[in-house]
Design a protein around this nucleic acid. Sequence first.
DNA 1: AACACGTGGATTGTTGAACAATTCACGTGG
DNA 2: CCACGTGAATTGTTCAACAATCCACGTGTT
Lengths: 229, 229
Amino acid sequence: MTFDDALAAMRRLSSGARHAHTGQWVAGALRTRIAEGDLPPGTKLLEEALGSALGVSRNTLREAFGILAAENIVTRVPNRGVFVARPTAEDIAEIYRVRRYLEPAALRWGGAGSRVATAELDAVIARARSARDAGDVAAMAGANQEFHKAVVARAGSARFDAIMSEVLAEMRLVFHGMGDDPAFHAPYVEANGDIAALLRADRADEAAEGMRAYLDQAESQLLAAVRRS
Amino acid sequence: MTFDDALAAMRRLSSGARHAHTGQWVAGALRTRIAEGDLPPGTKLLEEALGSALGVSRNTLREAFGILAAENIVTRVPNRGVFVARPTAEDIAEIYRVRRYLEPAALRWGGAGSRVATAELDAVIARARSARDAGDVAAMAGANQEFHKAVVARAGSARFDAIMSEVLAEMRLVFHGMGDDPAFHAPYVEANGDIAALLRADRADEAAEGMRAYLDQAESQLLAAVRRS
DNA sequence: AACACGTGGATTGTTGAACAATTCACGTGG
DNA sequence: CCACGTGAATTGTTCAACAATCCACGTGTT
């Protein structure tokens, strides 16, 4: 899908903006388009064209850009414009650094006394298994992401939930360049299951340490692929 | 200091804004004013007055507001305006939730093999002790904050550093209503020392657990004070 | 006295035009 | 091939205007 195609598609969006929420609506529309791959990493988001397509002024669009830049979904380069983020190896390293603290902390200390949250993890893993067995890589990747989101949700913190949503959005940008290669997702389906099993056995510390090793491995694999491309 | 006084003071700022960085400059100027207590929690930040005082257009000021709102330094209420944040008990609970995961994780897993970072913690604790002994509550509080900032810095993550800076800025807004009461800061000077000692003894897990207990206590104390006021 | 309603003014949210500043793309000359 | 100049495109910011919403105050009713 070209930039012009994406513009045409956005022209067809019925404006869901309500007064005093227009900037947020625009940010949401762009976020969705980016997540769906319509606006691939590196795409320059031209203010005039995009503002016209979405039926908003440049000022309002710039407000949406501010929101998305704060989420690392777009990269704002002063005087040069706004681009859909294309995570570098350094960006990936930082994303995994954040995950290597955040997810194990949520496993180690979060969800105390909660059997409900473990059931939720199990449900997500079951979905990942089904998708893997059906050869549906996108659904498997999505389910794996849901697993990690649920892990962090054990902390019960709205801010961590928001951070994790952003991190996962960035991961999707990273995976955009990997095509639908099952090697990045399939091995982790069972690894997710192992972590859930440790939790169920009240071995939270081991689950936390296992998650750190898992994320080390996933990071190495991903960085290797980035270096090859 | 009244809002008008704060405006007058801002009128005297020489404009350090450089093209394409004006919004950020404005955000920085406001951040500083808020941190220094010139604009107390709850203060309404009027666009017209503030824009005129700072010599920037309303659009540019709104961009700065967006930045500060994302940092939870100001609260943006649609159609009503922007106010210096006044953290509620719920906000405080959320701040401590974040800290209860972030700081122990950095202690437990961060700074591996680093003696340098422990020395830095010790230096900050020494400063806190001096300030406490001199009866300088503001300096003691500041040094305690530096301790926590250094704890998180052991993770080596730019994003966590940024999150912690925001959290500490919010803590300052919380403490703004407490006056210079040493009871909120003095007991923690030695507690910080205990945590540093555990780290030096390579007992990171105990340091992490100790930090969680410490933050529980600090939260309870603060929430009790908020409920009394 | 307390409450409900209406009105005018103040303020915020957004648009669009204009201008300043910077970058980009292209052509020309060495 | 590289350096430089130029015009156009684009971004960053300002300004004025208008739409939308809220706030403060006055008036009337209970």
